[in-house]
Design a protein around this nucleic acid. Structure first.
Lengths: 261, 261
DNA sequence: CGTTGCGTTGAGTACCATCAACTGGGGTGG
DNA sequence: CCACCCCAGTTGATGGTACTCAACGCAACG
């Protein structure tokens, strides 16, 4: 039913963590992917025909899995391509020398870790799995080629970069000019919107694998303060968090809090 | 000598503010541009040959000027292309309904207002001139075409997007996890680096047309607090600001403050 | 049943915001 | 020339938001 619970096949193959798969084998993971038709994968696979490997054949993919709390990528390491989250949650973050930590974005199934990673040999942030995560790497060279030969790929990647920039601008505004409750409210609402676009929200309720530490790192607060704000939210009946789920109790009021002071 | 003072021609032509110029006239402004060979303009004009208009002829450009404190672009308006700052300073900012304001980035000569603006019909932020500004608009359609036909344009625009994303990530980290003095210190140092790359820094001193209000909007503080922090900087001999210039007094110490707590 | 991780709560504090008054420079007009 | 105003910046007083340190409850787990 939901993304995080029915991962039998993820479980069963977690032994071969980080094991690559040939893109042309019969058990091609994308065949059963829930988010295959959206975002970058959509453009890459649509033009190619899902089963054939013609002139616009499938790009080479390398499939990986990660357990929770493991780093999928460490800042500064060389990358050989672009990562896409197939299932599970992850996040991009920066760790300062003195331990302070800032999450740059939460990555949901179907998200490209970063569109511009296509042009960068190494990134300045790390990526960590939040839940069990299955992800896939597209080869940089191939992707760069298809950029010039396949207009829909260029368009898709452009849209991804556009969205990433807008999200970054939003984050800057939130962190620079909004109060704690505004930040947390907006954080929750944005997450819900993104999950809703994936059909992962039902009755204003969705899976929520984040610890308060993750929220704190994302909105630039401490866990203690996040606890207080969320406690206040809960007492006002705005949200309910528990059992790995988040349920919105009073959407209108949450929107009001998130929109202004 | 410096960018902002020798603007006789800017002055003299400020009458025809917002007046477009045909790209093929003899008084083509780029002929005298100081930053012509850098960034996007560099790639666009290099491949084309500066004087000729062959197969890879010049793209259509529309030149504009703006007085200080005028909005070059208002959030939400339809855009017909990509803006490049030719001379002067500007900034991208978001204005919240209740008046709070966050600056997203400072734009220096040679900067593209936003690389991804190429793919967006309207932007969610506004752009305001800080000094007298000359800027130029490249046509969206033409630029999109040259993206697929001219590899160096694609590469240049990729690098711009990459840099924009990295700057945004830096800003998020600063606003989320750094103290006031760290933010201001880093703000100054980053500005100096970017100006140095344009040859606009001499003896650790550079033109600095920003009011404390602008700094406050950029680093997410109030003007009052910016005044205190900068006052402390000045008293420690770290920086001296005055007469529209900023001079670094103790670069090592400023770096130390900016790098950690 | 101790341990560990996560969340909550309290007390005290630091940082930064807010409000307000005041300074000094630059322009303008009497 | 001076009065006046406006703008940018400074400074002080005060207060609130969010941080730090610490203790504790609770559930999961070995």
């Amino acid at each position: 039913m939901d993304q995080l619970s029915d991962d039998q096949d993820l479980d069963s193959s977690l032994r071969d963590e980080r094991g690559g798969k040939s893109p042309e084998t019969d058990d091609w993971p994308c065949q059963t992917c829930r988010v295959r038709d959206a975002g970058l994968c959509g453009s890459l696979l649509r033009g190619a025909g899902v089963k054939s490997a013609g002139q616009f054949g499938r790009l080479h993919q390398e499939f990986h899995k990660s357990l929770p709390r493991r780093n999928i990528y460490d800042a500064g390491r060389a990358t050989e391509g672009v990562f896409v989250i197939c299932s599970g949650w992850a996040f991009r973050f920066v760790q300062l020398p003195d331990g302070r930590r800032q999450t740059l974005s939460i990555l949901l199934p179907g998200d490209v870790v970063s569109g511009v990673a296509l042009f960068a040999r190494r990134l300045s942030y790390s990526v960590q799995a939040l839940t069990k995560v299955a992800y896939c790497r597209f080869n940089r060279g191939e992707l760069l080629n298809s950029l010039t030969t396949r207009p829909e790929v260029l368009e898709s990647l452009s849209n991804i970069c556009l969205a990433e920039n807008e999200q970054a601008d939003d984050a800057i505004t939130d962190l620079g000019r909004r109060s704690a409750s505004e930040r947390i409210g907006r954080f929750i609402l944005r997450l819900m919107d993104r999950l809703a676009a994936r059909g992962m929200v039902k009755d204003q309720s969705f899976e929520f694998p984040l610890r308060q530490q993750h929220i704190a790192d994302a909105v630039g607060l401490t866990t203690v303060h996040v606890s207080r704000v969320i406690g206040a939210f809960r007492q006002s009946g705005l949200v309910e968090i528990g059992g790995g789920r988040l349920t919105i109790g009073d959407l209108a009021e949450l929107r009001r809090i998130a929109d202004a002071k």
